[in-house]
Design a protein around this nucleic acid. Structure first.
Lengths: 225, 225
DNA sequence: ATCAATTTTTAGCCTTGCCTAAAAATAGTG
DNA sequence: CACTATTTTTAGGCAAGGCTAAAAATTGAT
């Protein structure tokens, strides 16, 4: 078993790796809220344990075993998020913070029981994939809502869970995963976007629209507003 | 918020206080599995925080605030135990160990949600009282099964959860809280006890019978076997 | 290509919570 | 009442995981 701290570092490295190519000391420091020097010393420890490879000044990379642990933690996190939402009715903007604590104390037995109760789900409440037990992750093909053109439609695939305020904001207009939407208009210069959700139209700021991802996009591109 | 370690010390002190009058350094050390010296230094810290009173060489006592925290931890523990048993089907001999971890990461919000889902319960799966939010504990009047005489009957009130093997053992004969039993015979010299549970008779070792508590005892005492 | 800015690492320190070994206080016994 | 056994405390250390300040390596810009 690894410490909570190690689990958090590995999870964080995995998450950065997924979107940034290079995983730097600074990016880990920032995402984890610790000093860069603390990151360096932890990287040394993780290297010794063969959980990452680390070339000085060159960033880090998860090894096979390191990635496996990261995915286990993420699986716990997302399974717990969904469980809290489904079984205990926790609002989707709160499940993340709770899961941050629970992910480290969930036994394999309880993981299985939750998995079963939930019917072996594949997505968490924000639409992120729940890694399977053996470490398989099925990412959904999707693009940020902000890139859609008027007339295009699609299905909400995923919403970033990094900010509870954002989740409450987009939740109020019903932008949950699996919801069908259509872009009605887009104001120029990063202006607001008008979308149709369940026969109601809503106006969405472009910044928020960067964190909402859409799949199954259909319709012509390039129409002006 | 207090550390997990502090919460565990307070909980342990409360539990010892309930059955031993004097709470000694050694008893805490033993129950918590740490060296006596570690206990002494923690007692110093808890005294400074006004969570206990401590006279050197004289044992410790919880203060009002210390007791409050101890009861909150115990409430979390027992609520989680019951939740795991009811909602996730975890066997009663396993809930304790899981709850040991969960009790420290349960938010007030989730505590409330579990409480509600369970219908505001008052007993955990072993029959121990779940302290109310404001710190009230309703102890059940009960005596160890080993003290019953042939012909006496009663209702299982509580079973000690200190040993999973014991729980599995008595669970196999259906000795769960709220179960009616009747003592048929008691062999002398701490010999086995024959009891009737749900129209079946079982033989129970006297050691196990020390950890099973019975309430609502009825019937004549003192008959020989 | 050199110098400045940025990033990363090293060095040294702190807190928490545990440990062992030794000293001090208390309790029990002849 | 004195002496021994037990209990508790003190003293000194250790590992984890943070921190700050300073040094070193890299990057970027003129």
């Amino acid at each position: 078993m690894y410490t909570e701290s190690i689990e958090n570092y590995l999870k964080t490295i995995y998450e950065i790796q997924k979107e940034s190519e290079k995983v730097t000391t600074n990016s880990i420091s920032e995402k984890l809220g610790v000093a860069p020097a603390s990151v360096t010393s932890m990287m040394k420890k993780l290297s010794e344990k063969k959980l990452i490879t680390h070339k000085r000044y060159q960033g880090v990379k998860l090894t096979g075993p390191g990635k496996k642990i990261a995915l286990e933690v993420i699986r716990h996190h997302r399974l717990v998020e969904l469980y809290l939402a489904e079984a205990l009715g926790v609002p989707w903007d709160q499940v993340h913070d709770e899961a941050e604590k629970w992910e480290h104390v969930l036994s394999e037995d309880l993981e299985d029981r939750m998995d079963k109760v939930l019917g072996y789900p594949t997505r968490d409440p924000h639409g992120s994939p729940i890694p399977s037990r053996d470490g398989t992750v099925i990412e959904l093909e999707s693009i940020p809502l902000v890139e859609l053109q008027p007339g295009q439609s699609g299905v909400i695939a995923e919403v970033s869970d990094h900010d509870p305020d954002l989740l409450r904001y987009v939740g109020k207009m019903g932008l949950y995963p699996m919801t069908k939407i259509e872009v009605l208009s887009v104001e120029p210069f990063s202006g607001p976007i008008t979308i149709k959700v369940e026969d109601a139209s809503h106006i969405l700021g472009s910044e928020a629209a960067q964190y909402v991802f859409v799949s199954d996009v259909e319709g012509e591109r390039g129409e002006a507003s």
